[in-house]
């Protein structure tokens, strides 16, 4: 997180190849790629593992609440049409992000600001939608504590929502810097790096949306008695734990 934001305007020792800071003695980099951009790629590789660990956790517990008959169930809670719309909005923000980068590279600063703002706005609609969705689910009885579906759903999608929120703050920072004339054409790398992050967060949502929302869950009626499912030991452990508490 700290790493990501640091990128945007810091020149570090400016080993980058963008001419924006004009220290002639800085040699170009060994690969010719801007160091900040490479840092972003390294961070995104690592971030993939963050999401990987969370998605693995979600998939481990996918279907467990239904098997153990601990409501609420995903097929009762999830509203696929609603989330499809907000997913569409988020994916469209990748288009406006590309337009923002294209604008600054052509020196069209007004266009840059318009598209930065549009991207941040679309992102905000997504996050706002998620806030509404979370509140709605909570009122329907889905909590972090109540069952495994609630816990793993809120943590996974919440972690993604936090990423989008940080992205929005980043884009708005770029917008303000541009308003104050601090974002010239030579500094288009600042927008490009923010764009890398933004596209990554969009791509991750495609995976999460598919795994959490689109792949159907088995209806509870199709399941046999939970105890017969081999989870007898869980109930045994629970009663043992209960006796410990008392």
């Amino acid at each position: 997180m700290a790493t990501a934001i640091e990128l945007e305007t810091s020149h570090g020792t400016g080993h980058g190849d963008d001419a924006g800071h004009g220290h002639a003695e800085h040699p170009p980099t060994s690969t010719g790629m801007d160091s900040r951009k490479l840092l972003m790629w390294a961070f995104l590789a690592s971030d993939t593992m963050f999401f990987g660990a969370l998605i693995a956790t979600y998939m481990t517990y996918r279907g467990r609440s239904e098997e153990l008959a601990v409501p609420p169930y995903p097929f009762d809670i999830l509203d696929i049409p609603y989330t499809s719309i907000s997913a569409f909005v988020l994916l469209m923000s990748s288009l406006t992000m590309v337009l923002a980068l294209s604008a600054i590279q052509r020196g069209n600063y007004r266009g840059l600001r318009v598209w930065l703002l549009a991207t941040a706005l679309l992102g905000s609609i997504f996050v706002g939608g998620q806030y509404f969705e979370f509140t709605e689910f909570y009122h329907e009885g889905l909590t972090l504590q109540g069952n495994m579906f609630g816990g793993s759903f809120f943590i996974l999608t919440g972690f993604h929502g936090t990423h989008v929120t940080i992205g929005i703050i980043w884009l708005m920072t770029l917008f303000v810097v541009s308003l104050r004339g601090g974002l010239s054409r030579e500094k288009s790398m600042n927008v490009e790096i923010a764009g890398l992050y933004w596209h990554f967060v969009d791509i991750v949502w495609i995976v999460i949306f598919t795994l959490v929302y689109l792949i159907p869950y088995e209806e509870v009626e199709n399941l046999a008695e939970p105890a017969a499912q081999g989870y007898l030991w869980l109930s045994t452990m629970a009663s043992y734990a209960g006796s410990l508490i008392r």
Binding site: T57, T60, Y61, R64, S65, E67, L68, V70, G146, N147, M148, G151, Y231, L234, S235, A238, A241, G242, I245
Partner: peptide, 10 residues
């Protein structure tokens, strides 16, 4: 006390 099915092995 509810059996949520969380797994210590995870």
């Amino acid at each position: 006390l509810i059996t949520t099915g969380g797994d210590p092995l995870l």
